[in-house]
Write a protein that binds this DNA or RNA. Sequence first.
RNA 1: GUCCCCAUCGUCUAGAGGCCUAGGACUCCGCUCUUUCAAGGCGGCAACACGGGUUCGAAUCCCGUUGGGGACGCCA
Length: 467
Amino acid sequence: MTVTVRFAPSPTGFLHIGGARTALFNWLFARHHGGRFLLRIEDTDRQRSTQAAIDAIIDGLKWLGLDWDGDIVFQFVRSARHAEVARRLLAEGKAYCCYASPEELEQMRAEQKARGLPLRYDGRWRDRDPREAPPNVKPVIRLKAPRTGETVVEDRVQGRITVANEQLDDMVLLRADGTPTYMHSVVVDDIDMGITHVIRGSDHMTNTFRQVQLYRAIGAEPPQFAHIPLIHGADGAKLSKRHGALGVEAYRDMGYLPEAMRNYLLRLGWAHGDDEIIPTDQAVEWFDLGGVGQSPARFDFAKLDSVNAHYMREAPDARLAALMRPFLEKKRGKPIDPHGFARVLRGMPGLKPRAQTLVQLADIAAFYVADRPLPMDDKAQKLLTPEAKAMLGRLRSRLAGVTPWHEVAIEEAVRGFAEAEKLGLGKVAQPLRAALTGTTASPGIFEVMAVLGSEESLGRIADQAGG
RNA sequence: GUCCCCAUCGUCUAGAGGCCUAGGACUCCGCUCUUUCAAGGCGGCAACACGGGUUCGAAUCCCGUUGGGGACGCCA
């Protein structure tokens, strides 16, 4: 049987980081085994499902590079099938009609809570004669779950997990309006789609027992389950919208590379010995459920930054420049002309080891496309003393004679000038850097001049030089 | 409250009874390289939650305590 997994988000919001990791693990598992990775949108909650959320999930998966097989399955479309299975169970006596109203059940739970009892449906209609049903009340269909014995799940991550059946109540399969519940739809769809492995967050752990009972009632063999621990926020609390559970598009907008995101997310909960940098093709080769950890992990931006910095250094200059472009244009508030973009591209080798994100990369690349005269930051301004300005004037004259305008020739000229002036190179380089970049930190100054070209370099120096 | 799960440096983790005076990565701190800032190289700080067992021997197995998380909907 070919390995078949699915990622099954509900379209009630963006694709958050936990969902992204679940999708990644499923995708890796499928690709590792040469199996299929299916996408199913769980939109049975008509009130909360939105097209915007569906789009966000699809965009997020695409950005992360997680391609699914076949067509997207929309769960709601299959509701007739779900109802059919529920009614079959009803006919077989494995399910029953429950006429308790929502208000009645709410009251039941309130009483249970008040008396310190477990919150469970008490099975009040389980064995009651349907002829006693109140008039004009549409019933829900509940599973007639076993009341004795225990349900065992052999989880591929958590190991064997057991629960006493008396802890579980009779879950609703079909709502009063005839629509299926999540619990029921999931099981029917997973059976129909031939899902062999269910890899999902451990918040679904307790659902699993109920779902296994449903599989048994339907007469199907349950798939293998693998519950991966949740991701927590930096403070250890549950990752919620308030605790940095951002959509993947937020990470894209913060300037993270998708391959870095995949690597970081992979290491959050999965390990292969001491390996840290694991490119995606390597991950596909190595991924296994045995490497998944059992305890929750905290999301750590510092580590993500470091991983991202690594992948930025490895990325080809042209790709990085293209990816960074929108960030730089946003920062400038206007487009970059081809001339400026060419500079950024040429300057990329010196730029990329100095940034951890595309946002930072745009920040430090900005001077390459800045218009003259450049604004000087405070530290740069401080360096440009009257003496320094005069020095820059003399240096400019010397530089004007450099041909061809190449890095090596420029360096020779500047070093020769410093020597002639009896100045340390730093005394010359720092004011020069200020004039050329408007800051005190930048790529190597000879590289900067070479990239800028002689005309622009001399112009910028002249802008700051005295006399 | 009931049930389920988890527990190694600040964080992510390696560790499947002796290889552990517990390894790697990130962060932080030094040193080095150096025209600045990075990157790189070298080095440092830092952990087996606690208590009982089992065993010749336990971070690793068992039990308990504590702590954390998750689930208890006609939401998914």
